[in-house]
């Protein structure tokens, strides 16, 4: 039987205005969580948020005997604003890990991560998995990271330690390329060999749409981790529908949240 867990807040830190890094004490099985998987989280004995909110797993690690999990989130609406007010020692209710993770094809030697804003949350977990592989089998990890402004390039230093190469873009030009991260990636696109490269994308809706357009003219394999409002998180309520290329609705929580970009209707 799967359990629904109560997890204690170990720490919560505002990394940039309105953006938080939440560290939770979780059961050991979270060590088997795959990059791209998520949890449903709500605050213990509070009615707001009424429904759990889905959050990508950002990092899982051990400290002494404890298993810790990090979530990186933005206070967007009522639910996440309530989560931002959590304090050390508070309890949250967790269901997870849920959904499918990213799949890194065996033949791939180069991973390309394209992250927009909060989209870096699951991708940094993926980079970490990549960096943990034995040196001989380690893949080259290229990362393209974009945000509104330099201060929103969360945990850039850590990202640089995990990836072979990190290129950044900001809307205001305060760091790196001035413009969108997809434009930055597009300039490098020709250098990647489709037979050996896999692409992983997470960010705002707009970014998926431009990536979908770019990918139409390319035969790189490209996986996206997408978002939709959720209620159950386990495939039962059909609330999280997303249309696939055949016009059939898929459940983001169960059939995803990671999809091949060509599988979906954009």
């Amino acid at each position: 039987m799967k359990s629904i867990d109560c997890a204690a807040v170990v720490s919560i830190r505002e990394v940039v205005e309105g953006h938080y890094l939440l560290t939770l004490h979780v059961p050991r099985r979270y060590l088997r969580a795959l990059p791209g998987q998520f949890v449903m989280l709500r605050i213990h004995e509070r009615s707001v948020p009424f429904l759990g909110r889905p959050f990508s797993i950002h990092r899982v690690y051990t400290r002494g005997k404890h298993t810790l999990m990090e979530i990186l989130f933005r206070a967007a609406g009522a639910g996440t604003v309530a989560c931002a007010q959590l304090k050390k020692g508070d309890t949250v209710v967790l269901t997870g890990p849920l959904g499918s993770g990213f799949h890194v094809p065996g033949r791939c030697t180069d991973m390309v991560l394209v992250a927009g804003g909060m989209g870096v949350a699951p991708l940094m977990f993926l980079a970490e998995h990549g960096a943990m592989r034995p040196r001989k089998r380690r893949r080259v990890i290229h990362c393209y990271f974009g945000a509104r402004t330099a201060s929103h390039l969360y945990r850039l230093a850590r990202l640089k330690t995990l990836c072979t190469e990190v290129k950044v873009a900001t809307d205001d030009g305060s760091l790196g390329y001035r413009g969108t991260v997809t434009d930055l990636f597009l300039m490098d696109l020709p250098q990647f060999n489709p037979n050996r490269t896999a692409l992983f994308v997470c960010g705002p809706d707009m970014m998926f749409r431009s990536m979908a357009l770019i990918m139409r003219g390319s035969n790189l394999s490209c996986q996206v981790s997408i978002e939709e409002r959720m209620a159950c998180g386990i495939g039962a309520c059909l609330g999280c529908a997303v249309e696939d290329e055949h016009g059939i609705y898929k459940r983001v929580c169960k059939d995803g949240p990671v999809f091949d970009i060509t599988e979906l209707h954009w």
């Binding site: 009424f50 009522a78 209620a231 309520c237 059909l238 999280c240 529908a241 249309e243 059939i248 609705y249």
Partner: peptide, 30 residues
């Protein structure tokens, strides 16, 4: 889940929204 004679596609997203102490759904009997 409610069953019809033929499969039903349901409504386009967004299908759900949290409201004070509850939720709205428009799954559309998929």
């Amino acid at each position: 889940k409610g069953l019809s004679l033929k499969p039903r596609r349901g409504n386009p997203p967004p299908r759900i929204m949290e409201t004070p102490s509850g939720m709205l759904n428009a799954v559309g009997l998929e």
